[in-house]
């Protein structure tokens, strides 16, 4: 009679029944790990200050999530690594010279308002780290745009402040930007290695690409969003970014500078806030690219990646809604069948 007693355990849940090793925890911690090269590069270029800001962001994000669930008397979810990831991404989006309360306020907005109030991981409409940064940029525009020059000597405490490459490009033009770096090759080298002013994690394109390669190999992200995003930015920069008429722009500068690599591989691909259908993801990427270039070339801000991803986050449910995948074996309904 053992079967009868345990019969309630025989109720079969809905599909899928095949189980893999992949869990939310595993994916989140792998993403955290894949950001490690970028973190190391940021500490190398911006000194102990970078480690301090990164640590503060991570600790406060994890702490806010833990306190929130404790306050609600629910099981804490800090173990899944998503709070850690939000803190890490928020830190990568901050300039190295911010005072201590900036990461704290950013973490509060990112974790509690953007993620937890909406129901926690899986329900947030926006990328938490990006909302945290957008909130900070609008509330503290001065503090959030002081970019210190990278020193690579581990003594960046009183570093010189300077403008980011995109800032120079916007204010003074391409010739001035090349002059600052000496030559075009030096400029590309600076953008690739990260020896430029900017947010902590966005400067070194190579370190970010190494991390992105890990995610591709683990198949945690697909090519749809990053490729369509970066290709759109490249084409638009080539077509409209030059000052000698159409198709004279330099796509590489726009692709490598700013937060594009970080945004396209690590933030636009967030499972929760992007469309789930493949075709929708391509539309999402193209939209991100178009808005990014619109803001970079015509807008009031030098950098548009953050706002572009946030705006497309708004549209993600709409994209999902309008592109429903075809059901297997489904036949298009005709007028006669409806009657």
């Amino acid at each position: 009679m053992a079967t009868q007693a345990k019969s309630h355990e025989l109720i079969v849940s809905v599909s899928p029944h095949v189980r893999g090793k992949e869990t939310v925890e595993r994916i989140m911690w792998t993403v955290n790990l894949s950001l490690l090269p970028a973190v190391i590069m940021s500490i190398y270029y911006f000194g102990p200050r970078a480690a301090y800001v990164t640590g503060l962001c991570i600790v406060s994000c994890v702490l806010f999530e833990h306190l929130y669930w404790k306050f609600l008397d629910r099981k804490t979810t800090v173990g899944d690594g998503s709070a850690f990831l939000t803190g890490l991404l928020l830190a990568m989006n901050l300039p190295p010279s911010v005072p201590f309360y900036i990461p704290l306020i950013g973490s509060l907005v990112a974790m509690v308002i953007t993620k937890l109030l909406f129901g926690g991981l899986g329900y947030n409409v926006f990328n938490p780290a990006l909302i945290g940064r957008a909130f900070l940029l609008i509330s503290f525009p001065k503090l959030m745009t002081i970019w210190s020059e990278p020193t690579a000597k581990f003594i960046a405490m009183d570093a010189k402040t300077t403008a980011t490459p995109l800032g120079i490009l916007k204010e003074e033009g391409l010739t001035q930007l090349i002059e600052v770096f000496g030559s075009k090759a030096e400029l590309y080298k600076g953008l690739l290695y990260g020896n430029i002013a900017g947010s902590l994690g966005e400067t070194s394109a190579i370190a970010l690409l190494v991390g992105a390669a890990i995610l591709f190999m683990k198949r945690y992200i697909t090519w749809h969003i990053p490729l369509s995003y970066i290709a759109t930015v490249g084409v638009l920069a080539w077509a409209f970014g030059g000052d000698q008429g159409l198709f004279s722009g330099d796509p590489l500068i726009h692709i490598l500078s700013g937060g594009l690599i970080l945004g396209a591989f690590f933030m636009a691909t967030d499972y929760v806030t992007c469309p789930t259908v493949r075709k929708g993801q391509i539309i999402f990427g193209i939209g991100c690219g178009a808005i990014t270039m619109l803001i970079r070339l015509k807008g009031g801000f030098p950098e548009g990646v953050m706002f572009a991803i946030l705006l497309m986050n708004c549209f993600a449910p709409l994209i999902d809604r309008s592109i429903k995948p075809k059901m297997f074996g489904a036949v298009k309904e005709t007028k006669e069948q409806e009657k």
Binding site: F126, I138, G300, F301, F307, L311
Partner: peptide
């Protein structure tokens, strides 16, 4: 926060995203 309150927060967050367009025209 169910219902209207979360919608107000949501509207605020969307407005935050829309500030990206400021200064365009």
């Amino acid at each position: 926060f169910k219902g209207l309150p979360i919608s107000f927060i949501l509207a605020g967050l969307i407005a935050l995203a829309f500030t990206g367009f400021s200064g365009l025209i």
